[in-house]
Design a binder for these strands. Structure first.
Lengths: 348, 348
DNA sequence: CTGTTAGCGCGTTCAA
DNA sequence: TTGAACGCGCTAACAG
């Protein structure tokens, strides 16, 4: 292993000079020495030791990104945005996966703290569990006390900078949009009862329906992932309801539901309409195209990183609005007595 | 920031003792002192400084994973496997994305070298570019010279430990399997001419057809990603060939092709059969289900990590076989004069 | 512009 | 079993 000292000796300069030309920001070294150092470094194959730099500088160039599951396109899209943003800051990303285990989430924060990560990004919905919330918050607090920066993508519950998707508003807008297509009998695959993201989207949707005088939807709770959506869809079918449209509180759940419907001979959107939430990139190749609420996932990852890296006073919250995207998975219901009108002509 | 020294002072012990109870492997500290140290550490909110540890120990606990694109499920699956394996080793993963730029790939290796990563995993096909290959190899060599371990997932071209998918054999098996369904006129969406993975799969496929006396396929070259598949498919349609089956050399290309076919009113598999390669997880929700060659992507990521982390003498190559999975995207062609037989009864 | 030197936080001999 | 002290590779004053 070749060190800076080796380079300095080889170039016949002091350690400080070598450091200045190779790693220093303020470049104030004579041209001749500079050239000598550079050529020595090149010839010897010198590579900085980031650990030593971190120690000496008191700050590393890594940011931690904590996601729940690399299997879920939602998190992947966010992580991608964060990594791209980190590149721009010349930062390196260490990616941690919690597997949806709050315990692991806390452990990851501790690990990243140990790495002296400049910032930690935490994604994924909080659940209403005061104990776990408190412990995570405590772990984050000791991290922040030591100078660490934190940004959360989700609920602003931890006193940190936050990128907060407007889940409730999104659910509400979606309800209005779909009701505008003539639907009146809904079911919601609502995910876990105590998960804020799921609950907010559900709440907004229910509120939206209520505002329009539409009867409350049939509720089916379950997991927040694809299999949860699948199971909930099966459960819904077993209930033999007469709903015409199903809202799954995220896209992967909707994909699971779609598979369930298909395997039960229920055609979407002919027999049943379906909507999701997030607009994950993989929706692109789904048939039928899924109606959803678009969140700028990649940008949210970048926003969170920028938030965390920019010096900030108090906790800042940047809300991001979801945009309803009506696609073919939601069928426009014919209005009795009125001829069907193409969607493009309705302004919906 | 609370350091080990703070803890030691608080507990009334020496730095060495504190180090031994908190971070030492060989635990040889008296019970009373141990308890005192632990309680001090807890109360003060002590967190090790991994950078200092790395410097003192001369080895970090990070492994670098270099992928091309977090937008491609192939790489995500591999990275997921690698991260899970890293967890088992108590290692942390820093994930780098090259955006398919060989220059960035080299830069990432340098960065990870600087991090003193214990191992670097490199994914993604090599291309036949001796200059770039040489430079990457050189960068890896200085890394390995300093004690770094490297594993590659792809071609064994860099003198490193390698997890090598049998692309050619997979292509060949696929040709046999599909021909067994009665197809005789093929096209291959072959990806970039100079990319080994694409070329090997194509070559194997062509060989397989030749072995069966089937005429050589129509070749369409292009990008290795979804859009490349889409464009190639459009190009193929414009050629007005009479092929009955299209082989896209990876699944994301096949997905792009499928979209192109659909938007041109070509139904898969009724009008045209389609096959891919990899069996990426997202295939699960594709309609129609895609025939492909299954690679154990997640496991390959884990294998690579284990290879890199296990002390090894010379470069080891672990081949992984692809398994043909016939699904509905490839239609069994009726044989003139013979009644159609269900696929399950054919043993194909 | 260049060199000297004192740490950064921790692991690890070596003594006691 | 415990403690004192050196060094890991580098940065950042400070001096010249």
């Amino acid at each position: 292993m070749v060190t800076l000292e080796d380079v300095a000796r080889d170039a016949g300069v002091s350690l400080a000079t070598a450091s200045r030309v190779l790693n220093g920001s303020s470049r104030q070294v004579g041209a001749i020495l500079r050239a000598r150092v550079e050529s020595s470094a090149l010839r010897l194959g010198y590579r900085v030791d980031a650990a030593a730099q971190t120690l000496a500088r008191g700050a590393s160039n890594v940011v931690g990104v904590v996601i729940q599951d690399l299997t879920d396109p939602y998190f992947v899209a966010i992580a991608d945005g964060a990594i791209r943003a980190a590149d721009l800051h010349d930062m390196v990303v260490t990616l941690g996966t919690t597997y949806r285990d709050p315990e692991r989430e806390i452990a990851l924060v501790a690990t990243l703290h140990a790495q002296r990560a400049r910032a930690i990004l935490i994604t994924g919905s909080r659940v209403s569990d005061d104990y776990m919330l408190g412990r995570l918050r405590a772990e984050l607090d000791v991290y922040r006390a030591s100078g660490g920066r934190v940004a959360v993508i989700g609920q602003a519950l931890l006193g940190t900078d936050t990128v907060a998707p407007l889940n409730r508003e999104g659910g509400r807008s979606l309800a209005h949009a779909i009701a505008g297509e003539g639907h009146h009998r809904f079911a919601v695959l609502a995910g876990p009862r105590h998960m804020f993201t799921a609950a907010d989207r559900t709440l907004g949707f229910v509120e939206g329906l209520a505002e329009l005088g539409v009867p409350p939807p049939v509720m089916v709770y379950g997991g927040f992932d694809r299999d949860g959506g699948h199971a909930a869809a099966v459960e819904l079918l077993d209930m033999k309801t007469d709903v015409t449209c199903v809202f799954a509180v995220n896209d992967v759940m909707a994909m699971g539901a779609l598979a369930a419907f298909r395997s039960h001979g229920v055609d979407v959107p002919r027999d049943l309409s379906l909507a999701g939430f997030d607009d994950i990139p993989s929706l692109r190749d789904l048939v039928p195209e899924l109606t959803t609420v678009r969140l700028p996932l990649s940008r949210m990852g970048a926003m969170a990183l920028d938030l965390a890296l920019s010096a900030g006073g108090g906790p800042r919250v940047e809300s991001v609005e979801g945009e309803v995207v009506l696609r073919e998975s939601v069928r426009r219901l014919p209005v009795p007595g009125i001829a069907a009108v193409p969607r493009s002509a309705t302004g919906a």
